[in-house]
Amino acid sequence: MEINNYGITLRRLTRDKIEIVRNWRNDPKIQRFMEFRDYITPEMQQKWFDRINNDNNYYFIIVFRGKEIGLTNTKDIDYKKGTGEAGLFIYEDEYLNSDISFRSALCMGELFYYDLKLKTSLAHICRDNKRAIQYNKFLGYKIADNQENIYNQLYFQTQEAFEKSAAKIKHLIR
């Protein structure tokens, strides 16, 4: 499965790519923003992929101009509740803090709301990850109730909030 839109390609994660993702994920520059910070072994990665390689989890490698630069996902989809959890990291420094993460968010939002027909996108963000909090708020995520004393805080986004934010982003990256 491949999504080509907004100048990027999202390529569904396949087993032959999980070592790349493991290496990215074990890099301290990525690991420090994750709730799970233990070293991930090849065996752990295989087991993880066995768990997520299904229709309840969509993981994609972000490809820009032929280069694999990061990972984005909707995981733990509950089709009855209409929920799923979003995630993203950009590994390649050149594309950090750029428009690429927003291009990816547009693709994933459209997959989430229009193709998978889900209703509420969830996100967990470590409370000290200021950039991620700002990024998600820009995308229309709001913090859920009773998160004040939690380190990895829950945020949610509705389709209406996504569409409002997407219109703004599409105008700027046109």
Binding site: N97, D99, I173
Partner: peptide
């Protein structure tokens, strides 16, 4: 500096100078 700042710079240049900056310009 963040991805939002990158978009804000594009928005500022669009509003103030009527010029469209691309992600490549910022990169």
């Amino acid at each position: 500096w963040s991805s939002i700042m990158a978009l804000n710079v594009i928005a500022m240049v669009d509003d103030e100078y009527d010029v469209l900056l691309k992600g490549d310009d910022i990169r």
